[in-house]
C-alpha cells in the first residue's frame, strides 16, 4: 500500500502515512514528551541554575511518604495478584452457579472510576461508616472505639476493592485459554488439586499473571485520587498527594518534579517490562512484519 511515494510528474511526494501520523506524533511530542523531559530538567533546577537541592529537600521532607508509597504499592500489587490467582483458580476449576455469578459481579468495580471509589470508601470506611456499624452490630468492633481506616489499611482496602477484580479479569482470561484436557489428563494420572494448580495452571498462565502484576503495580504508584481523598495531607501519605501539595500550596515545581522522578524510578522495572512486552506484541501482530 505504498502507492504514494512517487507522485504525479515524478515529483517526490511524502508518503501518505506521514500525514496520517503527523497530528498524533506532534500532539504526543508537545503534550507528553516535552513535559516528561521537563520533569527531569526542572527537578535539577533551582532559581534557574543547576542544583540537587530539590532532591535533598524532597528526601528530607518526604522520606516517610516515599517509603509509604513504596510499601503500599508492594503490598497491594502482591495482594491483588495473589488473590487474583487464587480466585481465578477457583473460578476456573468450579463451574457452578456461584462461580459464574461471581465472575460477572467481579467486573463491576473495574468500570467504576477511582474518584467514585474514593468517595465510596470515604463513607464506607469512616469511623462512623457502614463497615464499622456492621462490624459493631456483629460484635467484632467496639463502637465506642471504631476502626480508624483512613491510613494504610483503608487505602489498601480501596485498592484491593478496585484492583483485585482487575487482576481476576486478566488472570482468569489466561486460565480460560488452558484446555480442559490438560487438567483432566493430570487428574486421571492421579494429580492432587494443589499439584494441578502449581504444576499446570500457574506455569501455563505465568505470562498473564506477570502482566496483571505489572499493570497493577504501576497503576498504584500513579494513583492520586484515592490517597488524596482518603488520607489527604496526613503523615504518612503517598507521593502523589505530596506533589499536589507542593504545586497547589507552594508553586514549588522543583520539589514536585523531584518527587515525580522518584515515582518514575519506582516504576522503572515494570515500565520497561510493559514497553518491551507491548512492542513485541505489536511487532508480532503487524501484517508486514
Amino acid at each position: 500500500m505504498s502507492d504514494s511515494v512517487i507522485g504525479r510528474k515524478g515529483a517526490v511526494r511524502l508518503p501518505s502515512y506521514v500525514f496520517l501520523l503527523f497530528p498524533a506524533v506532534a500532539f504526543i511530542l508537545i503534550m507528553y514528551a516535552y513535559p516528561f523531559i521537563l520533569s527531569f530538567v526542572k527537578s535539577f533546577e533551582l532559581d534557574g541554575a543547576f542544583s540537587t537541592a530539590n532532591y535533598k529537600k524532597a528526601v528530607d521532607l518526604y522520606y516517610k511518604d516515599i517509603t509509604f508509597t513504596f510499601l503500599v504499592t508492594l503490598f497491594n500489587s502482591t495482594l491483588a495478584t495473589l488473590l487474583g490467582v487464587l480466585l481465578s483458580v477457583y473460578f476456573r476449576l468450579n463451574d457452578s452457579f456461584i462461580s459464574r455469578t461471581l465472575i460477572k459481579l467481579y467486573r463491576i468495580p473495574i468500570f467504576i472510576p477511582f474518584v467514585v471509589v474514593a468517595q465510596m470508601m470515604n463513607s464506607f470506611l469512616a469511623p462512623h461508616g457502614i463497615l464499622n456499624l456492621f462490624l459493631g452490630k456483629v460484635g467484632l468492633v467496639n463502637l465506642d472505639n471504631p476502626l480508624q481506616l483512613f491510613n494504610f489499611a483503608g487505602l489498601s482496602f480501596g485498592f484491593a476493592w478496585k484492583l483485585i477484580p482487575f487482576t481476576v479479569m486478566i488472570i482468569f482470561g489466561g486460565f480460560q485459554m488452558i484446555d480442559n484436557s490438560y487438567i483432566e489428563a493430570a487428574r486421571s494420572a492421579g494429580a492432587k488439586l494443589h499439584q494441578i494448580i502449581i504444576k499446570i495452571l500457574i506455569p501455563m498462565n505465568s505470562s498473564s499473571i506477570l502482566v496483571a502484576l505489572v499493570l497493577v503495580y504501576s497503576q498504584i504508584v500513579g494513583t492520586f485520587t484515592l490517597p488524596y481523598m482518603l488520607i489527604g495531607g496526613k503523615i504518612p501519605t503517598t507521593i502523589t498527594v505530596d506533589i499536589a501539595h507542593r504545586v497547589n500550596y507552594y508553586r514549588d515545581f522543583g520539589v514536585a518534579n523531584a518527587l515525580g522522578v522518584f515515582s518514575y524510578i519506582m516504576v522503572i522495572v515494570t515500565a520497561v517490562y510493559y514497553l518491551k512486552m507491548n512492542m513485541r506484541d505489536a511487532k508480532i501482530s503487524h501484517p508486514q512484519g
Binding site: 505504498s2 504526543i28 502523589t240 515515582s263
Partner: peptide
C-alpha cells in the same frame, strides 16, 4: 496498514504515557 519507518520508536512514544505515572506530566503541563 503501512510499513512505517522507525515504527518501534513511534510505538514507544505512544506507549510511554501508559508505562509511567501521569501526574508529573500534568504538573509540568
Amino acid at each position: 496498514k503501512f510499513k512505517v519507518p522507525f515504527a518501534s520508536l513511534l510505538l514507544l512514544l505512544f506507549l510511554m504515557p501508559n508505562a509511567f505515572p501521569q501526574q508529573p506530566i500534568f504538573v509540568n503541563l
